[in-house]
Every structure is written in structure tokens, then in C-alpha cells.
Design a protein around this nucleic acid. Sequence first.
DNA 1: CAAATAGTGTCTTTCAGACAATATTGT
DNA 2: ACAATATTGTCTGAAAGACACTATTTG
Lengths: 228, 228
Amino acid sequence: MDDVTDFPPIYVTVDVVVLTIRDDQLQALVIKRRSAPYKGKRTLPGGFFRQSEGLDEAARRELREKTGIDIAPLHLGQLGAYGKPQRDPRFRTVSVAYLAILPKLSEPQAGSDAATAQWMPVDQLSSRRLAFDHDEILADALDRVRAKLEYSPLAAAFCDPTFTIADLRRVYEIVWGRELDPSNFHRKVSSAEGFLVPTRQTRSLGRGRPARLFRPGKAQLLHPAILR
Amino acid sequence: MDDVTDFPPIYVTVDVVVLTIRDDQLQALVIKRRSAPYKGKRTLPGGFFRQSEGLDEAARRELREKTGIDIAPLHLGQLGAYGKPQRDPRFRTVSVAYLAILPKLSEPQAGSDAATAQWMPVDQLSSRRLAFDHDEILADALDRVRAKLEYSPLAAAFCDPTFTIADLRRVYEIVWGRELDPSNFHRKVSSAEGFLVPTRQTRSLGRGRPARLFRPGKAQLLHPAILR
DNA sequence: CAAATAGTGTCTTTCAGACAATATTGT
DNA sequence: ACAATATTGTCTGAAAGACACTATTTG
């Protein structure tokens, strides 16, 4: 490594793509900027990184401060670093992006920027809508979450603590953007070792046979995978 | 985003995990440190990030400066950001790690730190051998490359411009650490659309039937995947 | 010829996808 | 009973793993 004095420091930020399902749509949490640059435009929640904290820790803190949401570390994963030279017009920054998945119950709550935080369907954010390079970060997040549904039990993170197989299927259908055969889906998730733990409860929607409720299992990798 | 003046800048570095296959072993490029901290210990090649360059660009430059190797951007991918508070005892750093794959022909060459660059088998670097948090970065790189062999044509990046199916199989065997059935492997890679482009040449090893030589195809994703 | 390596074919099992059939509820 | 949803079963085809077999070279 070279001598540190030759290289000026760079501002490091953390940005978080928070995804949930609301109104049968995949939605992301965005914040409306109140100052220049990009005043009035939307961004991903995020902020500067502090000296004393690790990256994951910073992501959790930002999410908590901006939205009042305290997410389990389990459902927070790093996406990568973004550092194109002109990504912030003010000064040189590198942003470390995170992906967080929440069940639909949560609303943006109290917090420093809470007044400006809102959920928006990702379909309405698909291109050239967010400030900085946040469109690119969001696109990468969507690629990531679509891929992770295949081989990880991530889909359960979109659901309440107990959920039916139909709930889980709706998650896959909404994230992947296509319908799945209910019977084949049922067979596949049921046979994936450690994905679903049956409970003794059922849930009725008023019409039709009540569905069994499940809890997430301990598996970190699905085998066999639920292929797109 | 908050007011910038509240947050001290942080040093951003780039570290590169360069992998190749030499002597039938997966090997990584490491550099022996010539100054404190960790004097005499080995690290991954890397250095400070410059104001004017993008992250990918910085990774290529570091690799070129430290080793004389000019890698195609195609075979250079970001692993992620590492930012535990105490990862560098001197000051607060965040490192963006990259993974680079090279065919075995390359030797560490001229460059500022070339004298101290060397290839080492990853089996001999498996734990607590590298300075800073580079053991962790290397472990993540190995996870990544093992996974990528399944669904991407990355294995060809370990090979010369033309290669036989047996060459390719040795890559999988060495990276995954287990033997594969030659006939099943042949069938699988041959049927993966766009993975291999046949040439009219063959190559003889002196004994046995000569093998056909192939070039890498255009596919970015293997279908079906070559599962572990 | 034998030895060695390359490549093909066959069989069994697993799993995906299409879709039929059965089960259990509310109206 | 009927509509609606949940769940199980059946069939077909794709692909994996084990392994027998054929092909083409050198010694």
C-alpha cells in the first residue's frame, strides 16, 4: 500500500434499497430531497458513514434514522459499492449499497427524514427517476432479489411471521412478474428441506378451503432451488 | 443526506483477489509487505483509490501497477466493500474488493511492487495468513468463484484462448476440489448453449486420442447450469 | 497389439411443468 | 349444491449421475 498522504480521502456513504410488497406490487422506500443538488427529486434512504461503525451497522442505523424501521440483520445484505467519479456533483463519494426486505406491515415511521419517506412501486421507478446513480443501484437490487428467491429462503422475509403457501407464491409472482402454477409451487416449496416449518394453525380468507400456516425454517440455501 | 461537514472523510482502498491455476492448484497473487503495519506479512494487491477514477478502473490500475498484468474488464468483477472499524490499525478505511481471473500463462511482472508479488496456493492461505481482513476477502472470493462456475462461463477465463474440454474440466475439479465424471461433464458443457465454440483444431498430449479445441462462446449465463 | 485419453450411448433417478383430481371451507 | 381456494396425484420431458462402450491416437 502506498503512502497515505498522497491520496485525498473520499466521502463514504451508505444507501439502502428497502423493498416490501404493498397492494400486490413490489415497492421501494424513497425519500424526497429537500435541498440541492437534485432538490425535489427522490433518492434511496442513506447517508454518510461514521468513523466508529461498521458498514452493516451504518446501513441499519441509516434505515432506523430515516424511517424508524429496525430491521433484523438477517434481512439486510450488501449489494456492492458504487463509485463512478461524477456520481455526486458536490464531491467525490463512494456509496456502499444495501438491500433490505420487509414484510408489508411496516409503514415509514417517525425519524429525522420520516416526513419525506414514502413507498413507491418499483415499476414507477424503473428508469431515470431517482437522483445520483440510484436508478442503477435499484436495478441491481431488483436483479439480486429476483435471483435470491431462487436459491435462498428470502421470500419469507416479505411475509408475516406465519404465512401460507399462497402468500409465499404471491411474493414470487410479484417479484418475478409472472404467474406460477399453484400446485407445482406447492410441491416445490414443500419439498425444499428446511424452507417451511408447518404450524398447527390455518387461516381462512372467507371463501375456499383454509390454508395451513407456516413459519420460516432454518435453511439458508434451498435445495432443490425454486427456478425461475 | 446530511450536511457533509459533520462527517470526516474515510480512506477508500481497492484490493484485488487475482486467481489462476498453476501446478494443478488454485493460486492467488499476494504481496509481501515491506513496511508497518503487518511488516513482512502478505496481503492482497491493492492500494488507495484516486479522485479521478471509477472503482473498476482503480482495480485495473492497481493490478497493472503492482503486477504488470493488464486484465480484460470482462474478467474483473466486484466482490463487495469491507469496512470493519479496526480493519486497518492506522486509520479508518473502507476497501472495495475485486475478483480477477487469469489463465495460467501469466507471471507477476515488472511494476512498483513486483519484486514482492508472488503466487501462492489458496490452500496455504486458508486462514489467518494474510494481513488486515484479507483472509476474509479471499474466503469470499473463493465462495464467489466456486458459485460462478455453476452458472457463468467464468471457467474459460482460467484457460488459454483455445482449450480442450479436459482443460475445462480440470478447472472445475481444482476450483471445486472434487473429481468430476469426464463423460457427464463433456455432455453438460457441450449442451450448454453458447458456452463452447468448436474450432477445427485438435491438440494431442502425446498419448491418447487428440482432443478438440474450443473457444469461449458468447453466453453470459449457462443454461442449464453446471451444478456442483 | 496395448495403453491412454476423447467422446458417445444407456439406464435410472430427480425434478420441472402441465393439468387432472380430491379436500375443505363459506354461501 | 356450488364456488372458491388448498392440496395431492399423474403424466411427460429435461437433465443429472453412474457407468458401459466406442474412437483415435502413441508406443
